[in-house]
Design a protein around this nucleic acid. Structure first.
Lengths: 209, 209, 209, 209
DNA sequence: CATGAATGAGGATTCATTCAT
DNA sequence: TATGAATGAATCCTCATTCAT
């Protein structure tokens, strides 16, 4: 029965992203997160069940935004290649825009216990469904191969994006993640395209498209 | 200055894989691993620097085998598609043959601190190079598109295999991981194949090929 | 400077008896008592100094009633054996009528800190004096042995009643506490009776007598 | 699976008695007990399950001694009055000899949770049985009234001793507890004695008798 | 080489109490 | 009077690691 709303809730989320990105999950004491958020230690527990719940909530809030945003952006696009391109773009720009968040989601979140994996499972499954939907639509419309297994396709798509994002976060060099979008798109588009499909090549990826 | 060889070294490694697969990294006390291995607690520290070092060693020993094995299997194959197929097959069969190991490598290993990531970095980079080599060879020989970025290709390949393996480990259903090899191969082969390449389609994947 | 009177004061007392009887002193959060009483947490502190003060107040209010009642009932009785019988009857019936209160007074009250013991000391001393008075009167009137030490007698009388009450509260079997009164009276009457006293035997104990 | 034997076990018990007698149970940090015992904090947990277990163990060890000693002392005495006198003497001398222990057993032990009460229940029941046995033997041998209820008698006897001991511990005046033994005996002997029993009067109580 | 008893640092969490409204 | 959101002090216990034997 934590509150899970309000200004302090958000402040704690943001503080946690910062502190955890800098010190890792296990290196981030609740007291430190509280100080960074400008609230008392006990206040944390008015908004979150426990320390793990903070991590889960970061995931839910932030990836939730992505998942909520995606259908709006993708549904109105007819061409499935364009949809794929935009999906990748959206995924990468979420991280590009908040490197700390990217670090927490790609690295720290995975350091955690089974209970955390369970806590995020529902949200991640929704993202999975979203990607599978994109694949299915492409198959139905004739853009993609008709005999794909959407689940395997989803794993290839998500796995590719995830690996690219992780490498980006861990890299010392601060290259542009969005710059990878087109290349990743090329790979995935060719992997999915129907044989003889005239043009699986990337539509121009433009931010916000 | 730990010993890192001998019968007890191996016994501890195997005990750790078992205990960690069952209880998770944080749920696996050193004392428990010692008991399972049939040695005293202190003995652990004659063979390993610390608890993390056990995890790193599991990675090094087991993925090391894979990396040592791979060139022998792959180097003598001319057709790069066949090489790719065999790479995927090797990757998946390693996990298929030892589900506990798979769990430790795919899940528990990632729960750990920065120091672990650093400990395994060298080994994983070697695996990365191996994959990139496969890509480069395929480009040089004309099987794969000439203008691929081997690094991105590697991320797509590794990311896809990694995601499939992780889903397999986490799945409640005990399906056959090797059965996924061909499907994953199809995706990746198409993604890599040179345009107009006559046959990017899967060579028959046979165990041990 | 708490108020210590009014409807809410009484509501809190009753709520506390219920909550503490069910969950023990340490298991009874102030917030829970407040909810049960239908007041806000802060309101508690308008009527009580702190949590311990609630416990002390329960004791004062409830045992206070007993102590106020006792002289009225006992003073008009001439025969000291009858007085003793009625004292025991009164003591036991107080608990019998409110098992929750009995639990709080016999068990939970004693779980608490020195400050509580100090808080109830004055009230309990008054009860002690009351018992000692009964003994002294019995000695003066020739019913009891002339050379008794009233303080020791009081300890035997109170200790016996207290032990019987505690066992009753802790017992799983829900036997009748008042049914013990006569037996306890028999023991104590014989212990106190003057040698050769014709009839130390229990007057008929009747409720409300 | 704590060890519960050995020199350190005893040292911790003694240290705990001292620290708890001085600061109360809740005021006695485990770290403080460890320091007093000259061991590390973690060592406590090699010998005890948790903090409560220390308290329970004090009770078991110390009252256990009393219970083990009592039958040896009491069984060879024929006269039940003498047995009663010795029982009281033994009870009081245990406390007289170790006022700190008395404080812990009479006051602090009762401040604790249900789990502690459960932990000591078995031992205390054994003491109860011992007292009831004394009563029964006295009845059988014709010293005590034939129609006593041994359970009620036990409550009167134990309650009297317990109350006297508690008052002694809480008293500011440092009077002699053993000096109370004879007076308490007188009360209880008269309460138990068969009518017309020639001499319920106290045998001379001598230490060690 | 091997042991395992001993060590002790480290932190999430609770909940009585306060005080601005 | 009454509220209830916010506070923050206070501590038990775990378990990786050491070292005397």
């Amino acid at each position: 029965m934590p509150k899970r709303t309000g200004e302090k809730y958000k402040a704690i989320i943001e503080a946690a992203i910062k502190v955890i990105a800098e010190n890792g999950y296990h290196g981030s004491q609740v007291s430190r997160i509280a100080r960074e958020a400008g609230v008392a230690e006990g206040t944390i527990y008015l908004y979150f069940e426990n320390k793990e719940d903070i991590l889960i909530s970061i995931f839910r809030e932030k990836l939730g935004e992505l998942i909520a945003l995606a259908p709006k952006k993708l549904n109105k696009i007819e061409n499935s290649f364009e949809v794929l391109a935009n999906l990748i773009h959206l995924h990468f720009s979420t991280f590009q825009n908040n490197r700390r968040l990217a670090h927490v989601l790609q690295i720290e979140l995975r350091q955690s216990d089974k209970s955390i994996r369970e806590g995020i499972a529902e949200v991640i499954r929704e993202y999975y469904r979203l990607i599978e939907e994109v694949v299915r639509a492409g198959m139905d419309k004739g853009y993609f191969k008709a005999d794909l297994d959407p689940k395997v396709a989803r794993k290839v798509i998500f796995g590719s994006m995830d690996e690219v994002a992780t490498c980006w976060v861990l890299s010392r060099r601060r290259y542009n993640l969005l710059g990878m979008a087109e290349q990743v798109y090329c790979f995935l588009a060719r992997a999915l395209a129907r044989d003889g499909n005239g043009d699986p090549y990337p539509p121009q990826l433009k931010p916000g498209k």
